[in-house]
């Protein structure tokens, strides 16, 4: 598996496809990166590349956005823990169920649940570089 990619917005779909190729279908992706690094944009590309046609908007407010992957009928959860203050609030929304079930999860701002990582967890970090390029790394 490739460990690191550098790309621009134009190349993001290619990265999304490679990611999907590398990750098991029930992966729980813990995607970290600072504000504006492109976490949601990357998630949108991954979701789109799974054949999901819906309007894909940010889950910051809703915390969890659920989609159905057309081919596999598997659930995809796009989550954002930005507004949660601590692990207790994450447990209160039932996060443990999400981390062990068969769904594919993309989780932004996952730092408060780092202790809940399990064998399905993959840590990814996205950061901005000069010239609008982004770096994506498996941690």
């Amino acid at each position: 598996m490739l460990k690191e990619w550098v790309f621009t917005l134009q190349g993001i779909d290619k990265i999304a496809k490679e990611l999907l190729h590398s990750l098991p279908p029930d992966s729980k992706v813990f995607l970290s990166g600072e504000m504006g690094a492109g976490k949601t944009t990357l998630c949108k590309s991954v979701i789109k590349n799974l054949g999901i046609d819906d309007e894909i908007s940010s889950p910051t407010y809703s915390i969890v956005n659920e989609y159905i992957i057309p081919l596999s009928k598997r659930k995809l959860r796009h989550m954002d823990l930005y507004r949660l203050k601590n692990i207790d609030e994450a447990l209160d929304i039932g996060i443990e169920d999400y981390l062990y079930d068969a769904s594919f999860c993309l989780i932004e701002w996952p730092d408060i649940i780092e202790n809940l990582a399990n064998e399905k967890t993959y840590f990814l970090n996205i950061s901005s570089m000069s010239d609008n390029r982004r770096k994506l790394v498996f941690l």
């Binding site: 908007s57 910051t60 407010y61």
Partner: peptide
Amino acid sequence: GTTIDDAAGE
């Protein structure tokens, strides 16, 4: 019309 990414409040 709707947002294709972040909401205005966000």
